[in-house]
């Protein structure tokens, strides 16, 4: 599914310090540390501060996680509370 030295470029769109945004960020960090230790980066974009950036990745829902790399682009919306589904959504694990 994922080769050992592939770079993971992730972007998390949030709106301020909302509970859902905070939950998504902590869930994401946990998943990444567990499965992608040392080869991922997370860029957090707060649309409260930079609303014009929402256009770039066609953001409607908050929070939205965008997998920029590896291609293809994937989006997962929600607070990522279901780790199993998050892994499938990011294609870290094959669809069962």
């Amino acid at each position: 599914m994922t080769t050992a030295n592939e770079r993971w470029d992730l972007r998390l769109y949030t709106a301020g310090q909302s509970p859902k945004s905070l939950a998504a960020l902590s869930n994401l960090k946990r998943i990444c540390d567990e499965h992608l230790a040392g080869r991922y980066s997370i860029e957090v974009i707060d649309l409260m501060k930079n609303p014009r950036l929402a256009k770039d990745d066609e953001i409607v829902a908050i929070p939205t996680l965008v997998r920029k790399l590896p291609a293809p682009l994937r989006k997962v919306i929600g607070d990522l509370s279901n780790e199993e589904r998050a892994l499938v959504g990011l294609q870290l694990r094959p669809h069962k």
């Binding site: 769109y13 709106a15 909302s18 859902k20 939950a23 998504a24 869930n27 649309l47 409260m48 609303p51 929402a54 256009k55 066609e58 953001i59 409607v60 829902a61 908050i62 929070p63 939205t64 293809p72 682009l73 994937r74 989006k75 997962v76 919306i77 929600g78 607070d79 990522l80 509370s81 279901n82 589904r85 998050a86 499938v88 959504g89």
Partner: peptide, 22 residues
């Protein structure tokens, strides 16, 4: 606003704050 269901996975709680901000 382009919403492409094929590339979106839903997981947990969300809202449409992004739309409001836009």
């Amino acid at each position: 606003v382009r919403v492409e269901p094929a590339e979106i996975e839903e997981n947990g709680e969300y809202d449409l704050e992004g739309l409001f901000l836009r």
